[in-house]
Simulated scan of single mutants.
Amino acid sequence: MEVHIVSTVYDISVEKMNGETATLGNYANQVMLIVNTASKCGFTNQFEGLQKLYETYHDQGFVVLGFPSDQFMNQEFDNSDEILDFCQTNYGVSFPMHKKTDVKGKEQHPLFQYLTGEKKGMLGGEIKWNFTKFLVDREGKVVERYSPQTKPEKIETDINKYL
């Protein structure tokens, strides 16, 4: 795997569902909630809450970024079209979704290397399951990490603090 020197989250390139590459610099000065997702997980219904947060706060400079992962008991579809169709049809997802991503291990995407490296403490280290969430402030600093069990509505107070 290629080594990337990353000084801020904004330096990181990600691949959109349509295959385009973009940097998170496109979201500079916005509050980001970055989530590793899965379509066939017990927490999949969190898409509904994530979409609600996105709709409520998007106009204030907030974005949810979904990164599907198949690293936890193969709970994701094989291709991007299936993932996107599932999310849009079942949960009305309109926030940006990205290509299937390795969030841990030897092939861990640089974004998740950065996120897990920045947020230590009780929830620090390797991602253990789907729907781990990272809140990034307008300056690109990782300010909170939430467990998969944390429902999106429980994050609303923190989002408001950083908007």
Results as ranks from 00 to 15, higher is better:
E153I: 07
F95P: 12
W129L: 09
Q108P: 11
T150Y: 07
V103P: 06
G124W: 10
I159Y: 09
D137R: 15
Y91F: 06
M122S: 09
L135H: 08
F112V: 04
L115M: 01
T150R: 13
F134R: 15
E144S: 13
D158E: 08
N160H: 13
Q88E: 11
P152F: 08
K99L: 05
W129K: 13
K151D: 04
Y146C: 01
Y114C: 07
F112R: 08
H109Y: 03
F134L: 09
G92Q: 09
L163G: 06
E156P: 14
K106I: 04
H98V: 07
K141V: 13
N90Q: 09
G121S: 07
T89C: 06
Q88N: 10
Q149G: 00
H109C: 01
H98C: 02
S94G: 02
K128I: 02
H98F: 15
P96N: 10
I159V: 14
E118V: 02
Q88V: 13
Y162K: 10
Y162E: 05
K104G: 00
G92A: 01
G140L: 06
F134K: 14
D137E: 14
Y146M: 00
L115H: 04
L163T: 08
T150G: 04
P148C: 05
Q88M: 05
H109F: 04
K141T: 15
Q88H: 15
K151M: 03
D137W: 14
Y91L: 00
T132K: 10
G125K: 10
K99N: 01
L135C: 08
G140F: 03
G92S: 06
F95E: 05
T132D: 01
L123T: 09
Q88L: 01
P110G: 05
F112D: 02
G121Q: 09
S94Y: 02
F112C: 03
F131N: 00
V93T: 10
R145C: 01
P96M: 08
V93K: 08
L163F: 07
S94K: 14
M97N: 09
K161C: 03
G92P: 15
G117F: 00
K141R: 14
F112S: 02
K161R: 15
V143M: 05
Y162W: 14
K100Q: 03
T132C: 05
Q88K: 15
Y162D: 04
V103I: 03
D102T: 00
E126L: 12
E126D: 15
F112Y: 12
K154H: 11
T157L: 13
E107Q: 13
E153H: 05
E156N: 11
T157C: 03
K99F: 00
V143K: 12
K99T: 07
K161Q: 14
K128N: 04
S94A: 04
G121W: 10
Y146E: 00
P152M: 12
E139F: 10
D137C: 14
I159P: 12
Q113A: 04
N90H: 13
M122A: 06
M97Q: 07
K120G: 03
D137T: 15
K106E: 10
I127T: 08
E144G: 05
N90T: 06
V103F: 05
Y146A: 00
Y162G: 02
C87E: 07
E144H: 15
N130I: 13
T89Q: 12
I127W: 14
E118T: 02
D102E: 01
E156R: 10
I159D: 06
M122W: 14
T150V: 13
